[in-house]
């Protein structure tokens, strides 16, 4: 496995973009123990895509039928492919028709099957799962909360959308507590979820009702980073030592929290198609518990 430094990573990302470094420099050691590799570790990078809302139609994105396909092509066009791709929810746009919901999920699944990278992780957003408690989602994409390990990092996928009231729920919180209890105190932990776990802007429903309980469980661990979606824009926030990074959408951008009376989509800019949309590459510098985030456009120009 090639090891990257930040300069290499910017080159391999190929499309340019805005870079954001996140994390805390700490004593080395935990990554090696979690990985079980006895003193060796590999940096790696993954790609986060979010809020693709397949099935959406409307003026905020007149190009909605091809935006996801262009994003898949953009990921496939990266000079070096990521270790994995993660979609942080709202894969499909909601519909009140269960049959149409499944049709959209099948179409989404078929489109993203064209990704060169076959290691792809999914989670639902409220548009996918809140009307049927995740039933259709699970038929297509499996569990709504789970963990996986990759090269010294423990990834936790939390579901804060299958409950339409935006609760994680006591059962899942107990599952989270049990999972964390197995980890060394200085484990590298990344949480993927859809909604913000903290109260970003409750007036626009940009919160998880019991998210504070999840943060409380994570707080004893010094090396935790959260990546999420839902708010259709880049956003960075700290809850004490835990950074939370929101990703852009791939359908339409939403306004900054509280910047206008309603959270209506920002209008499509015909002079700058895809403005405000994009995805991100995240380089994990495992030994430093540092994540270098590069925001990438759907298309150049």
């Amino acid at each position: 496995m090639k090891k990257y430094d930040r300069r290499d990573f910017l080159k391999l990302a190929g499309l340019g973009g805005v870079v954001f470094a996140s994390g805390l420099t700490r004593m080395a050691g935990a990554a090696d123990r979690v990985a079980g590799q006895g003193g060796s570790y590999d940096d790696f990078y993954f790609v986060q895509l979010s809020d693709t809302h397949w099935g959406f139609e409307g003026p905020p994105n007149p190009d909605a039928k091809v935006t996801l396909k262009k994003a898949v092509a953009a990921v496939n066009g990266l000079a070096e492919q990521p270790d994995f791709v993660v979609f942080t929810g709202d894969l499909t746009h909601t519909t009140d028709d269960p049959k149409e919901r499944r049709k959209r999920m099948a179409e989404f699944r078929d489109i993203v099957a064209d990704l060169k990278v076959k290691n792809v992780h999914f989670m639902p957003g409220e548009h996918d799962a809140s009307l049927d408690k995740g039933e259709a989602y699970q038929e297509f994409f499996g569990k709504t909360h789970y963990t996986f390990d990759h090269k010294g990092v423990h990834f936790i996928v939390l579901d804060n959308v299958s409950d339409p009231a935006a609760n994680i729920g006591e059962a899942q919180l107990q599952w989270l507590a049990a999972d964390l209890a197995q980890l060394p105190a200085d484990a590298n932990i990344v949480v993927f979820t859809h909604r913000p776990l903290f109260d970003l802007y409750p007036q626009w429903d940009w919160a998880t009702r019991d998210g504070a309980k999840a943060i409380e469980l994570l707080m004893p661990y010094p090396n935790v980073t959260v990546f999420y979606g839902h708010i259709h824009q880049e956003h960075h926030h700290m809850t004490r030592h835990i950074p939370h990074h929101a990703a852009k959408s791939l359908i339409f951008p939403l306004p900054a929290p509280g910047s206008q009376p309603k959270r209506a989509p920002l209008p499509w800019d015909a002079a700058h198609p895809y403005k405000g949309l994009g995805f991100r590459s995240v380089e994990a510098e495992v030994k430093k518990d540092e994540y270098v985030i590069t925001e990438l456009p759907v298309q150049k120009g």
Partner: peptide, 18 residues
């Protein structure tokens, strides 16, 4: 002036329910 909204996802027009 304070916004109120539906905070239980209820369907395709949920986000406009304010």
């Amino acid at each position: 002036t304070f916004t109120f909204f539906c905070d239980i996802f209820c369907g395709s027009g949920h986000e406009d329910m304010t």
